[in-house]
Simulated scan of single mutants.
Amino acid sequence: MKSPLLTLMLCAAGLATGGLETVQAAAQTVVHSAAQAGHSMPGMGMPGMDMPARPAKPLTSSLAVKALKLVQGWVSAAPPGAEELSAYVVLSNPGKVALTLTGVSTPTAGSAMLMTTARDAAGRESMQMTAAMKIPAGGTLKVLPGQAHLMLRKFGRQPQPGENVSVTLRFSDGSARTFSLPVRKLP
């Protein structure tokens, strides 16, 4: 990585030899370098360069999360006006590390959560929100009707059969993975 001072000198040289585009590219490098060092360099005296320093982007998906396979997945269609939809997935973890699913989100719904289905001693079913679902190393997580689901709520516009819903799953290691799930009617 170049030092900010060296990059500023390159900016000056670029202005003399490479024009404004070279200067702007070098200035962005200075801002990025300063951000990594925890400093802010707003403006730099150039139009369009009032960029706040930002830390480097976090890793969006660990190798273990990238290796997950979506065996099947869908969003269950509901009658018009329904306030909640359920999404289902079967995820296969071919890796040697267990993973923990800790959250779900989608731009389609205002809120989403992990839910499990429990039965009491009398056989009555109830849904319970859960903080996590385990995906064993070399194993499978089945989020299927009657067992568990991803609850999607507060729709701007309810998705219809034949459309796809983008669903992002978040994991305990800070990773996330997005899948496109078709909306379909249950038989």
Rank of each mutant, 00 (worst) to 15 (best):
S3R: 08
T102G: 06
G45C: 07
S172E: 09
L59Y: 00
V75C: 10
S33I: 11
A16L: 14
S76F: 07
K142W: 09
L59I: 12
A27S: 09
R184D: 04
A37M: 10
N93Y: 06
L20I: 15
N164V: 11
L63T: 09
P80W: 06
F171S: 02
P107C: 04
T116S: 10
M41V: 13
S180Q: 14
K134P: 00
P161D: 09
I135E: 00
S166I: 02
L15K: 08
N164T: 13
A53G: 15
L8F: 13
Q72A: 08
S76W: 10
L70R: 06
S126N: 12
A131L: 07
Q158D: 03
V23S: 01
L5Y: 15
L114Q: 00
A64K: 04
H39D: 12
V183G: 03
P80V: 13
V71G: 00
S166M: 11
P182C: 07
M129P: 10
Q158L: 14
K185S: 15
G18P: 00
L63F: 10
E163W: 10
Q147N: 15
T100E: 12
V183Y: 03
S3L: 04
L99R: 02
L181E: 02
T17C: 06
K185P: 03
T17D: 07
A122M: 04
G43I: 01
P4D: 03
T108F: 01
A82K: 01
S76E: 15
W74C: 06
A26S: 12
V183L: 03
K142Y: 04
T108L: 13
P145G: 09
T102E: 12
T60P: 07
G19P: 01
D173Q: 02
S105N: 11
L59P: 00
A77L: 03
S175G: 05
P107N: 04
M113L: 12
V89L: 01
L91W: 08
L5T: 15
H149W: 15
A121L: 11
G110Q: 07
G73H: 08
R157L: 07
M49C: 12
R54P: 01
M115H: 10
A148D: 05
P94R: 04
P42W: 10
T60W: 09
A77Y: 09
P47V: 10
A35D: 04
H149V: 03
L144N: 11
P52M: 05
A98I: 00
Q24C: 06
G73R: 11
A176Y: 00
V90Q: 07
G18H: 11
S111F: 02
T100Y: 04
A109Y: 03
G123K: 13
G123M: 12
L6T: 15
F155G: 05
W74M: 06
H32R: 14
G103F: 00
L85T: 05
P145H: 09
S62T: 06
T117F: 08
P94G: 04
Q24W: 05
M44F: 12
A13N: 02
P107I: 00
A112R: 02
A176M: 07
L6G: 10
H149L: 13
Q128C: 08
M44P: 02
S111I: 00
P52F: 06
V23G: 01
Y88Q: 01
Q36L: 12
P55E: 13
T100D: 01
L59N: 07
H149N: 15
M44C: 09
V165L: 05
E125Q: 11
